[in-house]
Amino acid sequence: MSLTQDRPELTAADLQTSRSRRARSHTVRWLFMGAAAVTVLVSALIIWTVASEAWTYISQVELDKLTDIGWFPRRGLFDLSTLLVNTLQISVIAMLVAVPSGFGAAIYLSEYAHPRVRKVMKPTLELLASVPSVVLGVFAISFITPSILTNFFDDINYFNKLAAGIAVGLLVIPLIASIAEDSLRAVPLALREASAGLGARKVTTSIRVVLPAALSGLMAATIVGFSRAIGETMVVTIASGGGDTSLFNLSILESGGTLTSAMAALGLGTDQVAGNNLAFQSLYFLGALLFAITLVLNMLGDVIVRRLRNRY
């Protein structure tokens, strides 16, 4: 009691903040909100531009031009299957390269590597992800095709889908390895101990307990990697050729344009394509298609990941 007696009586003003401080916190709030709004606005603008030009294309193109002998936009031949097949082939090759080595690296880093080794290797791996894709594109045509693939295939085209797929795979490895490693490390130590306690060797524990427990994360890594492979542009444009025109061809030893490289070629040649047989608008149509594919893939991934998610 004696302690509180000397204290002056509390007034409402004591608990109020000054007007200028309140104004400042309001301003800060609006600034951050503005920053958030800009990103939303830009996304909306992109979608609107792409969608409206894509709509122009769809409504004006003769539909039988969408299935033809190949992709020759300036001649008005827009065979979509050419680009879709090439995109799929290159992405699948990329995943065949990236998933085994990415998962392998992840298992090594998470289960086997000494902490000191991991401390150095994980950042190195992530550094690899920052190699510019143009470098890998050049690597594909200056090394993968001439020094490796020509030894196995006599009649390989200098620009070919196989080399492009391998290079895209190399590009995606660090991404997959990094996400996969995170999900393996998230598996509780208690499960590894339980397995070891039952007389399981490390490799058995890794394959039968840790991998299944991390399944949702591994699926996520695969899907993110696949999205990245489909969206990769520069490697494919350089290594696979045929972005501007390509004949439908199932052989992976031949050149062939993808959705992305066709867009890049169209985008680079705007002076020639503008007002020419809807070629300019086809660029936006491809963009919309690519966007839709990646969106569906990501949503699918989300569903799969949610269904497989484990509570430990």
Binding site: E193, A194, A200, R208, P212, A213, R311
Partner: peptide
């Protein structure tokens, strides 16, 4: 590994595998 097949262990916190009841015991 051979020792642990003879000397089993139960841990402080229940740590079943994220598998079915059957598969846990059959592991």
């Amino acid at each position: 590994v051979e020792v642990r097949r003879r000397v089993g262990m139960v841990f402080q916190k229940p740590n079943p595998f994220p598998k079915s009841i059957y598969d846990n015991v059959a592991y």
